[in-house]
């Protein structure tokens, strides 16, 4: 029984097609990644999912029923642009948002305190929102989305602007909620996070689905022809003929092997070459393309405004060798 089901959803603003026949489903107890470059229609899709806008055609079902506003009490939403009342005190704000989602004031207050403790921001409780740091405000927003114990959690860029400690805290919380059987949809540019956390993804570009399905299944469509290795010493083995291209950084290389029916065997050859040259190897991993590579392959080429800034800086700093 899917929690969310979008069927052939389409939305046009004036002449611009924001969302063009998008379909996907989200199952309970899974984490779903909605990916795509800026302006590809992620936010438009999410807005139709929670009834902020109405699709021109197609249908949206929540909790196995055609969309109805009552279902929204079971949805928690963290928008991309954070929105809190600046002048309101943190606790008043959380209680207010909790009440809007159908909680009574006492339950809302109890849960808000528990969540603040869990998110390690108890010292923020008596303050006004505008006095808090950006990261803290983000945690408040995060709590606001979860206070009413929603079965569907929609998070638009939940980790942006958070330091690694806090990002991990939120990430662990989301994983725990998934284990409790909640469905989590999140959109992000950070492909490493999606790869680690998501069970299935939908990649959209220019309002169309370009790739969707279970993470494992998508990965299996691609050949296992990537080698990531960490080493010290002689680098000459990188010029071996089995190497089609390589990005290499200080003591770390991301290698694409040449096309071959037996890439595993070729990898073996490469490893032997390195060992023969006396290179010390601390990591050698044979793998499919990363989600990031798939993403760039699908949308990178024809999308000028693809957000480079959110990719790890080291990739941009690497250089490419052709063997």
């Amino acid at each position: 029984m899917p929690i969310v089901e979008l069927q052939q959803v389409r939305k046009v603003y004036d002449t611009k097609v924001a969302v063009d026949n998008i379909s996907f489903t989200i199952e309970p107890g899974t984490m779903f990644g909605l990916l795509g470059p800026n302006g590809s229609g992620k936010t438009s899709s999410i807005r139709m999912m929670i009834g902020i806008t109405v699709p021109d055609s197609g249908s949206v079902s929540l909790f196995n029923k055609p969309f109805e506003r009552a279902s929204l009490k079971r949805v928690g939403y963290l928008p991309e642009e954070r929105g809190l009342y600046k002048k309101m005190k943190v606790m008043d704000q959380l209680i207010f948002l909790g009440q809007l989602h159908g909680l009574d004031a006492i339950t809302a207050s109890k849960r808000a305190h528990a969540w603040c403790e869990r998110m390690q921001i108890t010292e923020a409780i008596p303050k006004k929102t505008e006095e808090l740091s950006k990261g803290m405000q983000q945690k408040i927003q995060f709590i606001a989305a979860l206070l009413h114990d929603p079965d569907l959690i929609i998070m638009d860029e939940p980790f942006s602007g958070l330091d690694p400690v806090n990002a991990t805290l939120l990430q662990d919380t989301l994983i725990e909620l998934r284990q409790q059987g909640k469905a989590v949809l999140f959109s992000t540019h950070r492909m490493d996070q999606v790869e680690r956390m998501c069970d299935s993804i939908c990649l959209i570009s220019n309002g169309r689905v370009v790739l969707s399905g279970a993470m494992r299944e998508i990965k299996s469509r691609y050949p296992v022809n990537r080698v990531h290795m960490t080493y010290t010493g002689d680098e000459a083995f990188l010029h071996h003929q089995v190497v089609a291209s390589v990005k290499h950084y200080n003591g770390h290389a991301e290698i694409i092997l040449r096309d071959s029916p037996d890439t595993a065997g070729e990898a073996q050859v490469l490893l032997a070459e390195a060992v023969a040259r006396g290179t010390r190897i601390s990591k050698f991993e044979l793998m499919e393309p990363t989600l990031e590579e798939i993403f760039i392959e699908k949308v990178g080429g024809n999308h000028a405004d693809f957000d480079l800034s959110s990719r790890p800086a080291t990739v941009a700093a690497g250089d490419t060798l052709n063997a």
Binding site: P79, G83, Y85, Q141, A144
Partner: peptide
Amino acid sequence: EKTSRVFEVLLST
């Protein structure tokens, strides 16, 4: 509310 983007949150309920 518009500049602080509270709308998005409110409109989701």
